[in-house]
Structure formats: C-alpha cells, structure tokens
Amino acid sequence: MPSANSVKLSCESLWKVYGNTPEQYFTGEIGSFNVEEKFQQLTENGSIIACGDVKLDIPTGSIFIIMGLSGSGKSTVLRCLSRLVEPSFGKVELDGLDLLNQSPKDMIEIRRHKMGMVFQNFGLLPHLNVLENVAFPLKAQGISKNERLARANEMIDLVGLEGRENSYPHQLSGGQQQRVGIARSLAAEPEVWFLDEPFSALDPLIRTQMQDEFLRLQKQLNKTIVFVTHDFHEALRLADTICIMKDGQVVQIGTPGEIVLAPADDYVKKFTSEVPLWKIIEAQSIMEPPDGKDMDRPSVKPDTLLEEVMRLFDGKTEEVQIVNESGECHGVLTPVSIIRALYRDEKKVG
C-alpha cells in the first residue's frame, strides 16, 4: 500500500488550446515565452485557451476537487487527465507512467483497468437496463456474461439500487440514474475515479444525500479521486484538497481550511465570504500556544471543527485545550480567539 503522501496522478504545464495551429506556441522561439506572454499571444491570434499551464499533484487515496465556474477550464483539465481530450501540450503521469505517450491501444487498457468516470448528465446507455449498463465496462473487456453480471450485481448493491436491475434509465429518477453511473464507473475496480460534476444535475436534497453516500463509499473503497464541481460548498464538504481555477488557470490549491483562512486573492475570497467558517476551520489552525497551566478544561483533537469546539463553552468553561493522540497539549482556544477567526481578523488572515 502506497503511503498517503505518494502522488498517484499528476500533470505539469498542461495546455489545451482551441484555434489556429496552437502547436507553434509550444515549439521553437515562441515556445520559450513565459506563461503570460503565451496567454497574450494566443488570445491575440484568436485561439481559445481552455486551460493553460496547469500543474497538479493528486495524492493517492485522497479526494482532489477542482472547483471553478463554468468556462474556467475545470472539465477540460479532467478530460486531459483521462485523455478524453488530447492536450495541446504538457505532461500527464499516472503512477509515473507518461499517459500522453501511450498508444491508443494502451490507453484503452489503462481506461479499462485503472480509470472510472462519472458524468454530470449520467451518460447512461438508453438501450440497456441498469444491470447491463453497470456491466458495460466489463463487457468491453470481454469478461464472460455470468461473471460480469455477478460483478454488476455487487456494484448495484453497493450503491443501494437493489430491485431496479431490470429498469431502463428513463424509468429512474435523476438520483437513481447517477447511482447507476457511479456503479458503472466502479465496476471495473478502477484506481483513479473521475467525477465530472456528478451531483450538479440533481435536486438540492438528493444532492446532499448523494454527497453523504459518496463519502461513505470513499471510506470503504479508498480510491484516488478527481472531482470537478462548480459548487464551493460541495468542494468544502467533500475535499481533502481543493484546486480553484479561473479562466483556464489554477488560482489556488490547498485544504479547505487553508483556502478559507488564507484565500490567495479577491476572487477566491468572494467564494469564502458566505461560507459557515465554523464548519470548516479546524481547531489546530487557529489555536494559541499552550500556556502551561494545568487546569480542568475540556480537551479536543487537533482536527476538531470549531463547530464542535464552540459547543463546549458553557458557563464555566473559559478555555479548551487541543490534545494530540499521545495526550500532549498542543495549544488552547478561547472564545475570543474563535470570534476573531470567525470575524476574520484581516490582519491575521491576510
């Protein structure tokens, strides 16, 4: 089992440009221009830069979320990572393997065994029933009918669709259809799981429910996940790491707490302004140094959310201490420090 910090999937100076002969901008003299110059040149020549100079490292077994508004290039990046879209320039590596140098045939093998993808509008095959849809990737691999249907049945159980095996996509609700999409993407037991706005087409209530199920599944399966969304709250809720994109470029990469506490620029700050900070900020990120006092006070773990910490302040409690697994006191939190963090002391947060 690879360590939690090892990189599963990565890309570097990834560009996707639509327009007249973008290749010239990556070779020869112009190829040596820096990023801003390239952006300017390409825009002037009428090309459209879907994404430019994107560098991502996606750690094994974590949920990596690419967040951005429509047109920010997030879907393009996702499709470049799976080579659904051929990048104009750059490097994509999966387990150290250069994906862009793989032959179409090898790429098919990689998709069959290592990748699964969920689509915003489900992408189900209208002529197949639920069972056949889920078994479809296995059919493409040439697995025998009995075996693939058995596996598909397991997947259907996993996403909680027992009893709907023989329904056709048009007979299912949106949430159910997406469960089929999820089951299908997992049928071939991929290592990397791509999700392209999987819950955006669903009603808000169903969306929350599906997010919970998604977290439950991930706890069970521990995949490496690249998840695209335009919903900042969804990103905060699900992500281990968030990458915020704007106009084809990466603006900031960080944990939800980092992004909320230290937005890279005004653009990111705008997203964070309406966020319930107490649900995101962990105790350890705003604690004050331990004062050495040994008094009777409640203790919490470093990654406890402020929401939980705040509940502990009753009439008698004035301080909460943060204690690590071995019982050492790391720091303390007072109501004042929490208020300051939630109020966003500009000087401190910067």
Partner: peptide
C-alpha cells in the same frame, strides 16, 4: 454518452 463509452474502455 460517447465519452462514457470511451471511459468504459
């Protein structure tokens, strides 16, 4: 749908 075919291998 086309992409889902590709991604299904």
């Amino acid at each position: 749908v086309r992409e889902s075919g590709t991604m299904s291998g």
